[in-house]
Design a protein around this nucleic acid. Structure first.
Lengths: 214, 214
DNA sequence: GTCCGGCTCGGACGCTTCGTCCAGAGGCTT
DNA sequence: AAGCCTCTGGACGAAGCGTCCGAGCCGGAC
């Protein structure tokens, strides 16, 4: 993606990144992270709006521990718009063996799962869903709830109605998500609304005597 | 399948049976049962060795009950060779409205399930999640952890040593409890220590190069 | 077109909570 | 007694929280 960058790491790994991005078509993004600054170095085929320079948000990969593995995953990630990703990460090292970057490949499993669901549901006996839905941290829960509504409404996040957002916030509130620090701004961002609007909608939930009319 | 039969029912329903058998390819069989004799009237695309005249083996469909539905299923059937079928049945009636035959369509779900498994397993996550983080009412969790240590140490809360408190705080921290608003003062109270001490101990956890000496 | 009501937005404000620091008060051992 | 360690309440700046306001952006009514 970047025209020409003076960064040696980008020049070194760019070909393989481009190749992977090309192979996995539109359903995978490839991200190169800077371990030192914890920011995005370069990104190919981005699925979100992340751009070089943005914070990476990937936890510390403990590259100081020599016994730590170089490759992680595949593990699951959830996007606010409901897409489910399979992600792998690799620690990239320079000639001296020092970790200098982290490569992440995020594959959208949505289309595959959709096809699989189509097949399993085709003429299937009406059976209860074996979905355990185990515990995750609140950020995952948030993406889960939002994604669930996206799928349920069949609407992309940008075309959510006011009621959709209210429903999402109600569910998250009942799940106790807003007891967590910094949860409100995070949810607002994920919902693509401003912090102000988020608080306004939340107030409306506790305060049904709002300006709403039916 | 049958060449020409004098049976009115077979002549009546044969076209739709042939059509369904054709549509569902090699993976479905269509069977027409005689309700009176409980025997196979005709069969298209058979998956087993059943032939016209064989006993139907289909359970009582209770066609005497006028409130019983006309269509059953889809329900699951198992074949001796392990194939899993999805089956639907329909009660067929003559002009007078009397049940005269039962149509069964048996679809082999095996190939579909195989394909579905292939898709779901493609690039599926194998690692759980690196984050064990928070969920469930944290106040309950807190009491749980503290109570566990009290029992494990056999010491009442007032006689806890510094290390005991450190251990409790470490466990709660790893459980992500302190991501919750107002959690630190609450834990401090529960541990019978001051807010200051709680923060001091927490700082010591993150900063093992503290004033501690051993 | 103009107006208007509803909604969202960013920015700003005051208040609460967070996390740190410090001086003092015990309680150990020596 | 002194020295050392730890806990404590109080105080502080920084950060986060929640509310409010004026400005823009529609979409419908006129």
């Amino acid at each position: 993606m970047p025209a020409e960058t003076p960064d040696l790491r980008v020049r070194t790994w760019s070909p393989v990144c481009r190749a992977v991005a090309l192979l996995l078509g539109p359903y995978a993004e490839v991200v190169l992270h800077d371990t030192a600054t914890d920011r995005v170095l370069a990104i190919w085929n981005p699925m979100t709006t992340r751009a070089p320079g943005d914070p990476s948000l990937l936890g510390e990969l403990d590259e100081l521990d020599p016994s730590a593995p170089d490759v992680y995953g595949p593990y699951e990630k959830l996007l606010p718009d409901g897409r489910r990703l399979s992600s792998v990460s690799a620690v990239l090292r320079d000639e001296a063996g020092r970790a200098s970057a982290v490569l992440c490949v995020n594959l959208d499993r949505g289309p595959l799962e959709q096809a699989a669901a189509l097949l399993t549901n085709f003429a299937a006996p009406t059976a209860p869903r074996p979905e355990p839905l185990f515990e995750r941290d609140w950020t995952e829960r948030m993406n889960d709830v939002i994604g669930g509504h996206v799928r349920a409404q069949g609407r992309p996040l940008e075309r959510f109605t006011r009621e959709d957002r209210l429903a999402v916030l109600r569910e998250l509130d009942e799940a106790g998500v807003f007891a967590v620090r910094r949860a409100v701004p995070a949810v607002a961002t994920a919902l693509r609304i401003s912090r102000s609007t988020a608080y306004a909608l939340l107030a409306e939930l506790k305060h049904p005597a709002g300006p709403r009319k039916d």
